[in-house]
Structures are given as structure tokens and as C-alpha cells.
């Protein structure tokens, strides 16, 4: 069996704040194979962004710290790397795109300077080749007239263009893994679709693996091969995208699906999930979702559910997985 590109094992990332320890990521395990797209879905505060920042080892300082687990990229444990070693990995083996294209680019440097930064750092290209490489990258992300655009500043470009520039920067050193943290949330709907299509094309061309962090099942359906659903710092269900849409096994996933607007069914009101996610500063026993779950029984409140494999590649952490599957 070949090893996966990225393997995260029992990752625990805590935030040590003045008001207590927030267990933002509390025992998360998943893997990403080369060339595939894994979606990580969850609501705000579920720990999906903290998971991404843990992989990049760029947690908010000084509060954030990885307190346990392993993150293996091509077999090498990133948790054990020094800051210097991480700088050589970031931008070269893995890259990241942030949510807001308006604030992701430095306002006082030209597009050309910013796209060439990682190339100059990691590849040490001579100036002539650098300029050509930058133009090629801009062309790759479909920026019209790249020869003149390199001299432009970010404020002269639209949000969609800026996010494509951010994409060009991320892909400049041909990383094997791209983490995209809600890259389309700040874009118009039409631009969103365009951007996802561009990502998918580039993925096919470069053999890139993508972790797509999102709260939008529409994005998941468009681009993800597999999905991991996060709730309160843990992954509660993992499945191939089609499987998850057809037969969601966790009551939380099912509730999320129901709260999504659909065109093929008329409804006056979208069902919402009652209650609030738990306070991650408390020591929690039992299933994190139990207080909001209609199917919860005594064991749900007492003990965290073991992982159940309901079908090949479809795993869920729920005591009543079989019953839920039968119902879905």
C-alpha cells in the first residue's frame, strides 16, 4: 500500500487563552492522497481553520499550540520540524489560500513582485527567468495581458482577479498540497464557480492535492472527492462526496443537509439545528452533538462514540450509526 500524501493522526491543537484552554482541535485524524480533493466541512468554530493552520504550523501566537498527534507530509512529521525547516516546506511542498482576496495581497508591492517572491526564495531564479515564470503563472490563472498586469498594484484589480493572483502565488513553486480556506466565500456567485473550475483544471494539470475548507455543501459538490465533517473540534463523519450526499450517517451531517436550501423541494422554512455548539473550554464527555441530537440516548451522553465503518471508505462516530443509516 502506498502512503498517503498527508496523514494527520490524532491531532490536538489547543488555544491557551486568558479565559481558559480552548480545545479547538481535539483528536483529529484524516488523510489526503496525492491528486485528490478532501473537503473539510463544518460551522464556524468547529476547528477546520485551526486544523489547516496546524498543518502549516502557523497557529496564532502565543495562544495556539499543537499539544499532541502527528502530521505526516510525504512521511515526514511536520510537528517535529523546526521553524527554519518549516519555512523551507511552506510555499514549496504545500501552499495555502486565505478567505479574503481583498486583504491577502500586500497593497504597496506590485503583482509581479508578489508572485515572484516565493520563486525567488525557494527557486533562486535569475531575474530574466523570474519575469518569464511570473508571466506564465499569471497566464495559468487566466489573468489577461500578464505582461502589463505584472506592474499593477492589487487595488487596481477586482476581487476575483486578486484571488486568482493569490492562487498563482500559492502554485508558483508547484506544491503537492494546497490548502484552501474558504477561498470563494468572499467572491460573487458567478466568480465563485469560475474560480472552482480554475482550481479543478489546475489540479488536473499539476497533480495537486487540495484540502478545501468550507461550510458550503455547494462547493463540496463541485470540487471534492471526499468529505470530512467536523463538529466541535472532531471529525464526526468521513465519506466519498457522493456517498455523503446520498446516505449521510451522522445525525449532525443529516441536519446540515436538511438545512441546505434545495431547488427540487418546495419548503417555506429551512429547518435549523436547535441549540448551540458546546463551549470548547469545558471538559466534554460523550458525543459533542448529543445535546442537540434528537436521537441521543444515555450512552451518547456518557461516552464518546467509537468510529464505525458503515461501508468501505465511509466512517462515522455515532453510537446509532446503523439505525441512522437505515433511516437515511
Amino acid at each position: 500500500m502506498t502512503q498517503p500524501l498527508l496523514k494527520v493522526d490524532d491531532l490536538r491543537t489547543y488555544l491557551f487563552t486568558r479565559n481558559g484552554i480552548v480545545r479547538a482541535v481535539d483528536g483529529v485524524s484524516f488523510h489526503v492522497d496525492a491528486g485528490e480533493t478532501l473537503g473539510i466541512v463544518g460551522e464556524s468554530g468547529s476547528g477546520k481553520s485551526m486544523t489547516a493552520l496546524s498543518i502549516q504550523r502557523l497557529l496564532p501566537r502565543p495562544a495556539g499550540r499543537i499539544v499532541g498527534g502527528e502530521i505526516r507530509l510525504e512521511g515526514e512529521d511536520l510537528v517535529a520540524k523546526s521553524e527554519r525547516q518549516m519555512s523551507a516546506i511552506r510555499g514549496r511542498s504545500m501552499a495555502m489560500i486565505l478567505q479574503d482576496p481583498m486583504s491577502s495581497l500586500n497593497p504597496v508591492f506590485t503583482i509581479g513582485q508578489q508572485v515572484s517572491d516565493p520563486l525567488r526564495t525557494h527557486r533562486k531564479l535569475p531575474p530574466g527567468e523570474l519575469r518569464k515564470a511570473v508571466e506564465r503563472l499569471l497566464e495559468m490563472v487566466r489573468i489577461p495581458a500578464p505582461q502589463t498586469r505584472v506592474n499593477d498594484y492589487p487595488h487596481q484589480m477586482s476581487g476575483g482577479m486578486r484571488q486568482r493572483i493569490v492562487g498563482a502565488i500559492a502554485l508558483s513553486c508547484e506544491p503537492k498540497l494546497l490548502i484552501a480556506d474558504e477561498p470563494t466565500t468572499a467572491l460573487d456567485v458567478t466568480v465563485q464557480a469560475q474560480y472552482l473550475r480554475l482550481l479543478r483544471d489546475l489540479q488536473a494539470r499539476l497533480g495537486l492535492a487540495i484540502i478545501m475548507i468550507t461550510h458550503d455543501f455547494g462547493v463540496v459538490a463541485r470540487i471534492c472527492d471526499r468529505v470530512a465533517v467536523m463538529y466541535a473540534g472532531r471529525i464526526v463523519e468521513t465519506a466519498a462526496t457522493t456517498t455523503l450526499f446520498d446516505r449521510p450517517a451522522h445525525p449532525y451531517t443529516q441536519a446540515l443537509m436538511r438545512s441546505m436550501p434545495r431547488l427540487d423541494q418546495r419548503s417555506d422554512r429551512l429547518p435549523a439545528i436547535d441549540g448551540q455548539p458546546p463551549d470548547l473550554r469545558q471538559t466534554l464527555t460523550g458525543c459533542r452533538f448529543a445535546p442537540r441530537c434528537a436521537h441521543a440516548s444515555d450512552i451518547c451522553r456518557q461516552q464518546y462514540p467509537e468510529m464505525t465503518v458503515v461501508s468501505p471508505g465511509h466512517a462515522v462516530n455515532c453510537w446509532h450509526a446503523d439505525r441512522m443509516m437505515a433511516a437515511s
Partner: peptide
């Protein structure tokens, strides 16, 4: 604190730069 500084770190640029 800005996003573009975070992105520069994500690109693996040297901290001094």
C-alpha cells in the same frame, strides 16, 4: 496582523524579509 503578512509566512518567505 494583516492577512498579507500571514500569506507571506505561508509562502515560506524569510521572516527577516
Amino acid at each position: 496582523d494583516a492577512d498579507y503578512i500571514r500569506l507571506a509566512r505561508l509562502e515560506g518567505l524569510p521572516e527577516r524579509r
